[in-house]
Write a protein that binds this DNA or RNA. Structure first.
Length: 357
DNA sequence: GCGACAG
DNA sequence: ATCTTGTCGC
């Protein structure tokens, strides 16, 4: 079975890449489950290639608009309990019983006998392919390009989303460029691009990179450094979104995240003015830093073209004002949120809709 | 049972 | 992130 890809092409950066149609694969899979059988969110996630996607599977199913054609009532929890349903759990139980599946209370009877095993099928493991892409891109990371003296323009990026039909989102990105010398904003670009790749922990880049690249390729002032919302090498495969953006653009990048994804925070406190810094260890090596300011924490790690120490020093030296993060990051966030609110109003006029063929 | 799960 | 169909480890 041939499944769809969403293709993106960035002319100025000379990059073409394909994103698998995960909602499409999930829906096609559901149609193949025999009558009287069920599956679980985790089984579908394993078919996609990573059980970490179980929750994303549920999110995709929650957006199913054709419950009569695409039988998402056949997907239940790993322990045999029913799980949720847009039309109500009672409706889910009724539909299961119509297929002869016995349900008592909120559990399926003889769960192991009606569970249709999907994960033996190696064919659809698209997340494994994405891991291979991450491993390939990882081998292109170098850390020495950054030079503090030659770094004048720093850019921050952030994204916001408008949910559309058929599991599509309009991903909106803002890139704001700041002149560190004159202390002024010198460029600002917004982008808008359709995506249907769900958020899956450790695969964030495949959801957000297209929007960020589209905005970056339209900048007039080329940044010397990128501040990316999310992790850099502080990632299970050392390949957070900041690494993806850095490798694809060859611009030094730093990942700045509000929550930790991988690694262990050391108790070893380092004082830095009004902030505390804690090293974050991953597999016994320092892979990033936690910066704490008035009780609030962010996590910093290099993405591409900058060393761990330079990334930390640079972020500490940025202007933070009152917030828990550098003001430039906060500005990108506020801009893209406003952009989304304005765009939402326009979309209510034109009834934007994307159909699956 | 509760909290963690980049955005 | 937006909106509310999970899983795992402690």
């Amino acid at each position: 079975m041939i499944h769809m890809f969403f293709q993106y092409y960035f002319s100025r950066l000379g990059i073409i890449f394909e994103i698998p149609d995960i909602p499409g694969i999930i829906y096609e899979t559901l149609k193949k489950i025999p009558r009287g059988m069920v599956t679980t969110y985790k089984e579908i996630a394993k078919l996609l290639g990573d059980k970490i996607a179980a929750r994303a599977v549920a999110t995709v199913l929650a957006r199913n608009e054709k419950p009569d054609e695409i039988p998402c009532f056949k997907v239940v929890m790993s322990d045999g309990s029913i799980g949720g349903y847009s039309l109500g759990v009672t409706q889910k139980i009724n539909r299961l019983r119509q297929e002869g599946i016995k349900v008592e209370g909120t559990r399926i009877i003889n769960f192991d006998r009606v569970l249709f095993k999907l994960s033996d099928n190696q064919y659809y493991q698209v997340l494994k392919s994405l891991q291979r892409i991450q491993n390939t891109l990882h081998s292109q990371i170098t850390f020495e390009q950054f030079n503090s003296k030659n770094t004048r323009y720093a850019a921050a990026t952030d994204l916001s989303y408008i949910q559309l039909r058929n599991n599509f989102d309009l991903a909106l990105a803002a890139v704001v460029v700041y002149d560190l010398l004159r202390r002024k904003i010198v460029d600002l670009v917004f982008s808008s691009i359709l995506i249907n790749f769900p958020y899956i922990p450790t695969y964030l880049a495949f959801r957000e990179v297209p929007g960020i690249l589209l905005a970056l390729e339209n900048l007039r002032v080329k940044p010397d450094l990128l501040l990316i919302d999310g992790h850099g090498v502080l990632h299970p495969r050392r390949m957070g979104i900041a690494c993806h953006i850095g490798v694809l653009t060859r611009i030094p990048s730093i990942g700045i995240a509000k929550r930790i994804l991988a690694g262990k925070i050391s108790a070893n406190r380092i004082k830095a003015g009004d902030k505390n810094v804690y090293p974050v260890y991953l597999d016994g090596k320092i892979m990033g830093f936690c910066i704490e300011k008035s009780g609030k924490r962010i996590y910093v790690s290099p993405g591409f073209g900058i060393t761990l120490q330079d990334a930390l020093d640079f972020v500490l030296k940025l202007e933070w004002e009152k917030g828990r993060e550098p003001f430039l990051m906060l500005l990108a966030h506020k801009l893209v949120t406003r952009f989304r609110d304005i765009l939402r109003r326009y979309l209510s006029y034109i009834k934007l809709e994307f159909r699956r063929k």
